[in-house]
Design a protein around this nucleic acid. Structure first.
Length: 610
DNA sequence: GCCGTTTTCGGCCCGACTGTTTTCAGTCG
């Protein structure tokens, strides 16, 4: 585990334990915030912390003198004394208790101090005995809900990958649009912000008939449990497909798919209903992030206004909500006008993370799907792809790309039928021959060459020199420690033979953590050597991840967004790569796939590479 | 514990829903 991850984990635990002890909630929030900030940092805090550079640490938003001290203490001793002391007081199993939906810190504390419950097993015991009913505020219904939530978390609830959640959310929204009275329907939440995984699916509708919308929502075939159902919101647990292709093919046919088979993943889906005049304010509220919204509301208060999901209102400091008293909002119908009245440019959803977006003077021109004009990472049947060279070229041409690079695996990927040098030479001939058969798109010869554990490349220089494009990627030895991983990637970057560093960490979402190199150093090396860092657009990879893209973009490093095409459907993953790029504030200028053919081809031929 | 376009002290977003309650606490997003 990297130093940052270990620190974030400890601050998260400190926050949890303080909460369980009923300590000051703002101290809790401060530690939660510190954990979140540190988790998202691209660079390793180790060197700064070991040097005792408190001042540098305190420059980070949310890190003050006390937390800086704790970071230094951890870097030097490997421990945080406050963390150790709290652990001696609070049973470790209580954290698990708080992960049960509906069971928060107050209840966990009550169960612990009143009944001696210290973990989930203890909770189950008093549920079975029935003695839980004598705990204050514990009635039969609460216990029933608790049992359902226990069953839910025992199935192991992973966050749902973007590529599975988005097709499902589009299906739900499309259905809601057909319900009587519904004027608009869209998904919001972390899904709209393009996060790589999501905890639940948020659907917003504007409607004149909330009761009809709620009923249609609860009766959808995927719904297995209704959690909440009120006048303006409903929450359910629904089963969604875990085969991304199926949802697309399924369309709006409600009889097939996950709901019928019982497969798939169980996910919480929230429906929020608002009048159409509140659409913009509601979209902002429901899109988040929470941190972004808190900042917006604080900003509103400073301007003598108050912001909620119904609109931006003058702040008359009355205790009841302005909309309930018929006060007319200053802005509410569109997100643009709400931002404008707060003195802000429109902020794209993907960057609403309270990470500098409030300093923007105008809306940044972030990359869009249609900006992408080239695919530079694709496999054919020569290694582990399912398409021929011509089929691949045709697929790229259909998407109006001007260029596609054929980059099959190198020899060490024997399980993927990687090409030895002689086969690669033949393959390049075949690519050049295919070029003669298809017009309107440029075919480039290339390889996805393995970066071996020591950082050397899987082909000798003279082989790489023959190729138009070299994508270098780590595939094996993905459990390396951060230091050798950093050296490995930098050695590949500095080889002078590489155009693009492919899926730099090798992570697989929910399955494999991959490498944890010092990304700040990798980014600096890539910038210095004019190597582009890839955002692999496959939803199981999204590697670089958003925070790495953000750091790379700030450093002026070039980015490639590629689908790593193996089958025809893989081209459709591009939108996830673009969303990840947008989360990193990526502009088309900094993304080589957006460049005109001439500029891209000239860049690939740069002299430093062969 | 953090932070400053009122502030270095005194704040720190806002509303919906549920279940258990006789008016509200706890949880969630």
């Amino acid at each position: 585990m990297s130093m940052n991850a270990a620190l974030a984990e400890r601050f998260g635990q400190i926050a949890e334990m303080l909460e369980l002890l009923g300590m000051d909630k703002f101290k809790v929030i401060a530690h939660q915030k510190a954990a979140r900030i540190i988790e998202a940092l691209p660079n390793d805090l180790g060197p700064i912390a070991k040097a005792g550079d408190k001042k540098a640490l305190m420059e980070l938003d949310g890190i003050g003198p006390k937390i800086a001290d704790k970071i230094v203490e951890f870097a030097v001793t490997g421990k945080i004394s406050e963390h150790e002391e709290l652990r001696a007081q609070v049973p470790a199993g209580l954290a698990q208790l708080m992960k049960i939906p509906g069971l928060g810190p107050k209840t966990a504390r009550l169960l612990w101090q009143d009944r001696g419950v210290t973990d989930i097993a203890g909770l189950k015991k008093i549920i079975d005995e029935g003695s839980i009913l004598t705990v204050p505020r514990m009635g039969a219904k609460t216990v029933e809900n608790m049992k359902a939530s226990l069953a839910f978390i025992e199935k192991g609830q992973e966050r749902l990958p973007l590529g599975l959640a988005m097709p499902a959310a589009e299906l739900f929204a499309a259905r809601m649009l057909k319900v009587k009275g519904v004027k608009k329907a869209a998904f919001a939440g972390s899904l709209r912000r393009g996060k790589d995984t999501i905890g639940d699916i948020d659907i917003l509708v504007s409607t004149t008939d909330p009761a009809a919308a709620a009923e249609a929502f609860r009766k959808m075939p995927e719904v297995e449990q209704v959690l909440v159902s009120g006048e303006s919101k409903s929450s359910v647990r629904a089963r969604v497909s875990t085969s991304s292709r199926m949802v697309k093919e399924e369309g709006d046919d409600e009889t097939k798919g996950a709901a019928a088979t019982g497969g798939g993943a169980l996910v919480q889906v929230d429906l929020k209903m608002v009048p159409d005049a509140s659409w913009g304010a509601a979209m902002m509220y429901f899109t988040g992030s929470k941190e972004h919204n808190v900042s917006l509301r604080e900003r509103a208060l400073k301007q003598k206004m108050t912001l909620n999901e119904y609109g931006l209102f003058p702040n008359d400091k009355e205790p009841t909500s302005p909309q309930s008293r018929g006060i007319k909002p200053v802005a509410s119908a569109t997100e643009e006008e709400v931002y404008a009245k707060l003195g802000l440019p429109y902020i794209p959803p993907e960057i609403r993370e309270d990470r500098g977006e409030f300093d923007l003077k105008e809306t940044p021109r972030l990359i869009e799907l249609d900006d992408i004009k080239a695919e530079l990472h694709a496999h054919t049947v020569a290694s582990d792809g399912s398409m021929s060279i011509l089929e691949l070229a045709q697929g790229a041409k259909t998407r109006a790309f001007h260029t596609i690079a054929i980059t099959d695996h190198s020899k060490s990927q024997f399980q993927a039928n990687g090409l030895k040098a002689d086969r690669l030479a033949e393959h390049c001939k075949a690519i050049r021959a295919a070029q003669k058969e298809i017009k309107g798109i440029t075919l480039l010869t290339g390889s996805e060459v393995d970066i071996l554990a020591d950082g050397s490349l899987d082909y000798p220089d003279e082989v790489l020199d023959q190729l138009d494009v070299v994508v270098a990627s780590p595939h094996a030895a993905l459990f390396q420690k951060p230091e050798p991983a950093t050296a490995r990637l930098i050695k590949a970057i500095e080889s002078g033979k590489v155009n693009i560093l492919g899926h730099p960490t090798g992570r697989l979402i929910n399955r494999r953590a991959g490498l944890s190199p010092d990304m700040e150093k990798v980014i600096a090396a890539a910038k210095a050597n004019d190597v582009a860092l890839e955002i692999n657009a496959h939803w199981m990879r999204l590697d670089l991840r958003d925070t790495h893209v953000y750091a790379a973009v700030k450093a002026g490093c070039l980015i490639a967004i590629d689908c790593d095409v193996h089958t025809a459907d893989d081209f459709d993953n591009l939108r996830y790569g673009v969303l990840t790029g947008r989360r990193g504030w990526l502009t088309p200028e900094q993304c080589i796939n957006c460049w005109p053919a001439k500029r891209l081809h000239a860049w690939l031929k740069k002299e430093s590479r062969g």
